[in-house]
Computed example of a mutant assay.
Amino acid sequence: MRLIIEESEKKLNQNEFFEFQKYFSKKNPDEFRDFYLENNGGYLPETSHPSPLLFSGFISIKYGKIPIEKTYQDLIDDFPELKDMVPFAEDEGGNCFLLSLRDKDYGKIYIWLMDEKKLTFVCESFGEFINKLS
């Protein structure tokens, strides 16, 4: 099932995504790249059902008020242990969903619980995360 996203920012081209990847020590997984080349941030359509994972929306790359690059820099300034964790989405409480690019858990998805300053495992991959939202 394909995920419908609304209110995406300006569409990225390959060069813009390539520039984005320079923020990190490793290449982003293909499923993440493909998603962001199709949808640069945005929200799920409003429904009468509660949002899975208390999901709020995807953070955009390069464009928008606070893109991933800015969110990432702010996170690692305050929490250096989150280096090489891509903050790609938020939940309704303002917590960040993170994609790990670290050797020990590459590709896994976590949520950074801001109040508890705690990293919590969500799922095995970006594709699995998208499936949970579908």
Rank of each mutant, 00 (worst) to 15 (best):
Y110M: 03
K104N: 14
I76S: 03
S60R: 08
G107A: 07
N131A: 12
E128T: 14
L75Y: 04
A89D: 09
M85K: 09
I59Q: 07
K83F: 10
P87S: 01
Y110F: 15
K117L: 09
D74M: 11
K62P: 03
G127P: 05
K65E: 15
L99E: 00
K70W: 10
D74W: 03
L101R: 05
E81Q: 13
S60Q: 01
D74Q: 11
A89Q: 03
M114Q: 12
I66R: 10
V122K: 07
D91I: 03
F79E: 13
K108V: 00
S100D: 08
K104Q: 14
N95M: 02
S125Q: 05
M85V: 03
M114D: 13
Q73V: 13
D115C: 00
C123M: 06
L75V: 00
I109L: 00
E124F: 04
S60G: 05
F58W: 08
F79V: 15
G107D: 06
M85D: 08
V86C: 08
P87H: 02
V122S: 06
E90H: 13
I109K: 04
P87Y: 05
K83G: 00
F79D: 11
I59F: 02
K65W: 11
R102Q: 13
L99G: 02
T120F: 14
D84Y: 02
F97R: 06
L98P: 09
L99I: 01
C123I: 09
Y110G: 01
M85F: 15
E81T: 12
C123H: 00
E92I: 14
T71M: 10
C96G: 11
F97E: 01
G107L: 04
I61K: 06
V86A: 01
P80D: 11
G107Y: 04
I59A: 02
D115F: 10
E92H: 11
W112V: 05
M85S: 10
S100V: 00
G94T: 07
F97K: 03
I61V: 10
K62C: 07
L82K: 08
P87Q: 04
M85W: 09
I66W: 09
I68D: 03
A89N: 07
L113R: 14
D84R: 02
M85Q: 11
N95P: 09
Y72S: 07
A89Y: 09
D74L: 11
E124A: 12
F58M: 04
D115L: 12
T120G: 11
E124K: 13
I61P: 05
I59N: 06
D105W: 07
C96I: 13
W112K: 06
D103H: 01
L119P: 05
I111C: 08
K108A: 07
L99N: 01
F88I: 06
F121K: 11
S125H: 00
I61H: 06
S60N: 04
I68K: 05
P80G: 10
A89W: 08
V122Q: 08
G57S: 08
L99A: 07
G93E: 15
L82E: 08
N95A: 08
P67R: 05
D105A: 04
E124S: 13
D77T: 14
I111D: 01
L101W: 06
